[in-house]
Design a protein around this nucleic acid. Structure first.
Lengths: 242, 242
RNA sequence: GGACACCGGGUUCC
DNA sequence: GGAACCCGGTGTCC
C-alpha cells in the first residue's frame, strides 16, 4: 500500500482564502512514479474558498499532457461531491441546484468536468488538517500561491499570521457613531486592528463584551472598549472597576 | 484591595501541563480571613492544560465545608467564560458547541458547576505571568502537583522543561508480542530505574510512548509508531516534526 | 436540518 | 512553530 502506484498519477489539492471571501490561492502536488511536481497559484481579486478548491484540480488535470489514470485527493466534499455526482444532474437540468437556484461557479465546474473527461479519474476525499502529509503540502502551496499573487500585484502580504486585508471598501466611514446596520464589534485587538467578530447589542462581540475590555469611563462617559486581556488599557492605566 | 475581605473566601487557581497534552497538575491558594491554605494535585496520565485549569477551582470549591461567598481568580478565559456563560447554553442544548460538536471536558464542567452552585461565586480573570503574586503561587503549586504525581508513579520529573527520553534499548519490541500480563512500561528513566507507569499496547507508558515514536505522517495520514529513541525512523529519515 | 471546507477573534499550556 | 479550548462568521451543496 505504501509503494508507488505504477501508471497512476496521484494529485493532492487544496485551496485557501484569506479572508473568505477575499484574496485566495490554490496548490497541488502531482506524483507519478518517482516524479513529483508542485503547482500553485492565486488571485488578488475577491474570490472564495470553494473557487480555490476547484482551481487546484483544474490546473493539475490541465497540466497533464496526455490522458492518464489519475487519483485526485481533495479535502472538499464540495469538489468531490460535485464532480462525482451533482454535475451530471446540473448538465441535465440547466445548472440549477435542488432549490432551483443557479449553481455557483458554473464556469469552473464546466472547466473541471472538461479537464476530468480527458482522463480516468478517481476522486478521493481526505480530512483536512489531520496530518495527511500531501494535503498539508497542498495547503501550504495554496497559501504560497496567494502570497505570490499579492506580491506580484504590489501588495505586501502581512509578515506573520496577520490578516490579509482585501483590496478596498471593507471599512466603511463609521466615525459617525451612528452604529445602525454595522453588526461588527467595535473593539480593537492587541494588534491594533479592528475586531472582525459580529457584535452583540452592546456593540461588542461576545469576547470583548464581557471579558477583556478596559471598561474605564471615557471623557464622554462611555466605557472604553479597548481590548486589553483584562484590566485597563494603556490610556486608562490605574483605573479600577468598582 | 490587598486587605482581608471579611466573610469572603478568595481562591487563586492555575493549571499546567508538560507537555500539553501530557502529564499535568493544578494548584490553588485559598484565603479566608487571616487563614491561608494551599492545594495541589496532578495526573500522570495524558491530560490537557484546560482540564488542569478546571480541576483547580473544582478541588478548591469542593474543599469548602459549607456554602460561602467566594472570589475565584483564574488566568484562563476558558474557565471563566465557560462557567459564567457557556455552561448555561450547554445545559440547555445538550452540551454541544457552537459548531454542534460535543463540548470537551463535560465531566469537569458539570463537576465545576455543581461545586459552584453550593456557593455564591464571583469569577475573575487575571492575566497569567504578569506579576500577580497569588497567581504565580498557584502556578508553582500546579507544577509541584504534577511533579508529585510523577514521582509517586515512579517517574523522575525532568529537571527543566526537557522531555523524558528513555534509552534506545527498548527498540527491540519482540521477545513476546503477547503482552498480556506485562502492564508495566518497559522504558527506563534517566536515573536508570525502570518506569513504573502502566503500559499501553505498545509496551510503553503514555509518556514514553509518544516521546519516542517516529511520528512522521504515513501515507494514510496516521503517525508512524516505530520506536526510535527519538528522531525519525529509518523509513522516514529526513522528516522533521512540526 | 445535515456535511465539508475556508476565515476572524480570545485565553491558556508548551 | 504547535496543542488545548471556546466564541463569531462565509462559501457551497444536499
Amino acid at each position: 500500500m505504501a509503494g508507488e502506484n505504477p501508471g497512476v498519477v496521484e494529485i493532492y489539492t487544496d485551496g485557501a482564502c484569506v479572508p473568505n471571501p477575499g484574496p485566495g490561492g490554490w496548490g497541488a502536488v502531482l506524483r507519478y512514479g518517482g516524479h513529483e511536481r508542485e503547482l500553485s497559484g492565486g488571485e488578488v481579486e475577491r474570490t472564495t474558498n470553494n473557487r480555490m478548491e476547484l482551481m487546484a484540480p483544474i490546473q493539475a488535470l490541465e497540466t497533464l499532457t496526455r490522458p492518464a489514470r489519475v487519483d485526485v485527493y481533495t479535502d472538499s466534499t464540495y469538489v468531490r461531491g460535485g464532480i462525482t455526482g451533482w454535475v451530471t444532474k446540473w448538465k441535465a437540468n440547466g445548472w440549477l441546484t435542488s432549490e432551483k437556484k443557479p449553481v455557483a461557479n458554473v464556469d469552473l465546474w464546466q472547466r473541471l468536468a472538461a479537464a476530468a473527461a480527458r482522463h480516468e479519474v478517481e476522486w478521493h476525499w481526505v480530512k483536512g488538517h489531520s496530518g495527511h502529509p500531501e494535503n498539508e503540502r497542498a495547503d501550504r502551496l495554496a497559501l504560497a500561491g496567494m502570497h505570490a499573487a499579492l506580491r506580484t500585484a504590489g501588495i505586501e502580504p502581512p509578515p506573520e499570521r496577520q490578516a490579509v486585508r482585501p483590496p478596498r471598501s471593507f471599512t466603511q466611514p463609521s466615525d459617525s457613531g451612528m452604529a445602525g446596520d454595522s453588526g461588527q464589534c467595535r473593539a480593537t485587538t492587541r494588534q491594533g486592528r479592528r475586531c472582525a467578530v459580529s457584535a452583540r447589542p452592546s456593540g461588542l462581540c461576545h469576547v470583548h463584551d464581557h471579558e477583556v475590555q478596559c471598561g474605564a469611563p471615557k471623557k464622554n462617559g462611555e466605557p472604553c472598549a479597548i481590548a486589553t486581556g483584562g484590566g485597563p488599557c494603556a490610556a486608562h492605566r490605574g483605573y479600577r472597576r468598582s
